[in-house]
Amino acid sequence: MSVSLDFDESDFPNHIAKKQEVLPLVNTTKYASGQRLFDAFSKNTLTVDFSIDASFKNIKLHYITTGHGGHGGGDEFVKKENVISLDGTTIKSFIPWRDDCASFRRFNPTSATWPANKIMEGETSTQQIASSDFSRSNWCPGSDVIPEVISLENVTAGKHTLSIAIPEAQVATDTENNYWMVSAYLTYDIE
């Protein structure tokens, strides 16, 4: 199969795409086997200093967060508040959570399954429960993670500090790999 796409520029002046730039701020994701999991949220608030030029317009903070820890009481399966602050002022506080994970089971065929009566004591059922069915800290196996987008309209040029706290994040141990994968970046229009 081959496909060919033709695009024509819109005649409407508002349909012209604005040029944007990206300023990466934070990424705690483990990319290689030699890297350690980032479990520092259990110990402290993560802070990052950055600068904004006077020319930055339409500034938005994009924040992506997912909790992990494969045991039942871990950061993956327990609701934990994320607090994002800019220069000491909270700009977003929320509990990242997904309760629609069962709808993605068909996209994750390797997920282990168990009879429902093994999970829900006292009930008998022929229904199968898959590990991918369980609600999680902002992600589901087989789905993407949508960033929280926060408009920073009142941010002036100069130096700033972004702080990210997960106050109830758990410590990673040998048997409980609790950690949070967090990334944050700014987008802004250029003239």
Rank of each mutant, 00 (worst) to 15 (best):
M1A: 14
V3S: 12
S4N: 14
L5N: 14
D6Y: 10
F7Q: 12
D8S: 13
D8G: 13
D11Y: 09
N14C: 14
I16N: 13
A17C: 13
Q20W: 11
L23T: 02
P24S: 02
V26R: 01
N27M: 01
K30E: 06
K30Y: 02
Y31D: 08
A32K: 14
A32V: 09
S33M: 01
F38P: 09
A40I: 06
A40H: 11
A40Y: 10
F41V: 01
K43V: 04
T47P: 00
V48P: 05
D49G: 12
S55I: 03
S55W: 08
K57I: 11
K57E: 15
I59L: 03
L61V: 02
L61P: 05
L61Q: 01
H62V: 00
Y63Q: 05
T66F: 00
T66P: 00
G67Q: 01
G69L: 03
H71W: 08
H71P: 00
G73S: 12
D75K: 01
E76D: 07
V78W: 00
K80E: 08
V83F: 05
D87A: 10
T90A: 13
D100H: 07
C101P: 03
F104Y: 13
R106I: 13
R106Q: 15
S111K: 10
S111T: 15
S111M: 07
W114T: 15
P115A: 11
M120L: 10
G122P: 09
T126P: 09
Q127V: 14
F134R: 07
S137M: 11
S137Y: 13
S137H: 06
W139Q: 05
W139M: 08
C140N: 05
P141R: 08
S143C: 10
D144Q: 15
P147Y: 01
E148I: 00
E148K: 02
I150P: 01
E153F: 10
E153I: 12
N154A: 13
T156F: 08
T156A: 15
T156I: 12
A157R: 05
G158T: 06
G158R: 04
K159Y: 04
T161Q: 10
I164V: 13
I166T: 01
P167F: 03
P167G: 01
P167W: 04
E168H: 05
A169Q: 04
V171I: 14
A172K: 14
D174E: 14
E176G: 02
N177H: 10
V182S: 07
Y185K: 02
L186R: 00
E191S: 07
